Computed example of a mutant assay.
Amino acid sequence: MVRIEFDEPRCVAAGQCAMVAPELFDQRDDDGVAIVLNASPGPDQQDDAREAAAVCPAAAIRLVAE
């Protein structure tokens, strides 16, 4: 299992995370900064979480093993 850690101040509102993992991430309407919808993804969402972390241009997403 992994837990998503998100460093909001680093987010540049590119939206890549929300595009590759919409069940885990969304974006605020006012400034586009990402929102973590599910910080503890299930086994079926772990690959999406890894991809979201990999495509984040600001490296604002980190996965921590639990």
Rank of each mutant, 00 (worst) to 15 (best):
M1E: 14
M1H: 13
M1D: 12
V2Y: 10
V2P: 08
V2I: 12
V2C: 05
V2N: 06
I4C: 03
I4W: 01
I4V: 11
E5T: 07
E5L: 07
F6D: 11
D7P: 03
D7A: 09
E8L: 14
P9A: 07
R10K: 15
R10Q: 13
C11M: 12
C11T: 10
C11V: 11
C11G: 10
C11N: 10
C11W: 13
C11I: 10
A13T: 13
A13F: 12
A14G: 14
A14D: 12
G15K: 08
G15T: 03
Q16C: 07
C17T: 02
C17F: 02
C17P: 03
C17D: 02
A18E: 06
M19S: 11
V20G: 05
V20D: 06
V20C: 04
V20A: 04
A21S: 02
A21T: 00
A21C: 03
P22R: 01
P22L: 02
E23S: 12
E23P: 02
L24I: 13
F25R: 05
F25Q: 05
D26S: 15
D26H: 06
Q27R: 15
Q27F: 06
Q27I: 06
R28Y: 10
R28D: 09
D30C: 06
D30K: 07
G32P: 08
G32E: 11
V33Y: 14
V33Q: 15
V33F: 15
A34V: 09
A34L: 13
I35M: 06
V36K: 08
V36A: 07
L37F: 12
N38H: 08
N38V: 07
N38Q: 10
A39N: 10
P41D: 00
G42Q: 11
G42S: 14
G42K: 06
G42T: 13
D44K: 13
Q46Y: 08
Q46V: 15
Q46M: 11
D47W: 01
D48R: 10
A49P: 02
A49H: 00
A49V: 01
A49N: 03
R50F: 03
E51D: 09
E51Q: 13
E51V: 08
A52G: 02
A52P: 11
A53R: 01
A53P: 00
A54P: 01
A54I: 00
V55F: 14
C56S: 11
C56N: 01
C56A: 13
C56V: 03
P57F: 11
P57T: 10
A58W: 12
A58Q: 12
A59L: 10
A59G: 08
A59S: 14
A60G: 14
A60Y: 12
I61R: 04
I61Y: 03
R62I: 05
R62L: 06
R62G: 02
L63C: 11
L63G: 07
V64M: 04
A65T: 14
A65L: 13
